[in-house]
Write a protein that binds this DNA or RNA. Structure first.
Lengths: 197, 197
DNA sequence: CTCCGATATAAGCGCCGCTTACATTGTGCG
DNA sequence: CGCACAATGTAAGCGGCGCTTATATCGGAG
């Protein structure tokens, strides 16, 4: 049951890689299976041998994005001197994904068709990333009530995520004026995400 | 230069109304100008006499959404006993729009093509809603530094917005378990949005 | 009443996701 | 070894989309 070269070589993997690149440069909205197929030199029907539909291919790309995010979380924790610093680095890892690969980030968190009915693999990958985040939060406050920690983790994540979303949607254009720069605000958001309450 | 019935009888207004309804029931992604035209009994080319493209019609719907939001903000402030309560009611108005008209909310804040290049009318409407929010925040803390107030307004908005986005994207499904209910979390998010820091 | 500009239409272009019917090819089994 | 078969690929086509062009209709200004 080898998965080696048939006609193309490993079209499935090539599709995912090309889709990943396209998502990161032009966003998930712009991805066209016909384009993709043509750019890989196969017929427009070929992708359907490997993915039931467009959404399934995007789900695979998103799942790999969550795996990357999870890896970044773990690296952040591993490289930090203490649990508190680990939380801050974890937040920075999230910001980094959002701003360095905005198309992928949008796919992962704002997929047009609301990912509620997403594939099990995608849900598992997203769940794994959350577990890493939650574990870091628990380590930072080992003596606190678990519900309180979870509450703080979710509200903190919300703050970070909301800021990113508003900035990337252009909804803060013109409001971050004069005394406030985007960089300064970002630090304030980080503080609030990890902050006191 | 009256704008009364020609062939159809104010197709422009009918288009906006139908688009509004479609956006609220099925989300902005699902809106099709051809569908819309057919459901209004006109040819598929007719809408293009009133809007240069699909995006322009959606922009108009979004702008009206921002006008609604602004009105809700003002009503919240007017009905509150003190500036502090006004802020909380303002936040509830935002939540209310998000959860009672999620399709419209998605159009306003997650429009597929990132609304950076949006029409002036849309930007003006969005700016007006922000100004109302900012004014309420200033009234709640009349003696504070303006930059600090703005910082708090933006981070608070971010918290609220992020939570909504994560919930509506299904990204918190399964994480709000056991000791935490969605309603309870919502209160925590509200607290943090308005909160101490 | 006539003419003009605003409004609507019919037809069509190129693109899309996806399906069906058929061709090719590598692999495992008698 | 050879053959059937499943996995992989193709060509062609369906219906739908946004949008454009050329043409028809209609209401109001002169």
């Amino acid at each position: 049951m080898s998965r080696r070269p048939y006609h193309h070589g490993d079209l499935r993997e090539a599709l995912v890689a090309a889709a990943q690149a396209a998502v990161e440069t032009s966003g998930p909205e712009a991805l066209s299976l016909r384009d993709l197929a043509q750019s890989l030199g196969v017929s427009t029907a070929a992708p359907y041998r490997h993915f039931p539909d467009r959404r399934a291919l995007l789900d695979e790309v998103a799942a790999r994005g969550f795996a990357d995010l999870d890896a970044a979380y773990r690296a952040a924790r591993a490289g930090a001197p203490n649990p508190r610093a680990a939380m801050r680095e974890t937040a920075r890892a999230y910001l980094n994904l959002a701003f360095s690969r905005p198309g992928l980030f949008r796919l992962m968190f704002a997929s047009d068709a609301l990912g509620v009915d997403a594939s099990p693999a995608l849900l598992a990958a997203a769940g794994q990333a959350w577990e890493s985040l939650y574990a870091a939060a628990r380590a930072a406050e080992p003596d606190a009530d678990l519900a309180a920690v979870k509450r703080r983790a979710i509200t903190g994540w919300s703050t970070l995520h909301g800021f990113i979303t508003l900035v990337q949607g252009g909804r803060l254009k013109g409001f971050m004026t004069e005394p406030l720069s985007e960089a300064e605000l970002l630090e304030a958001v980080l503080d609030k995400s990890l902050g006191e309450g």
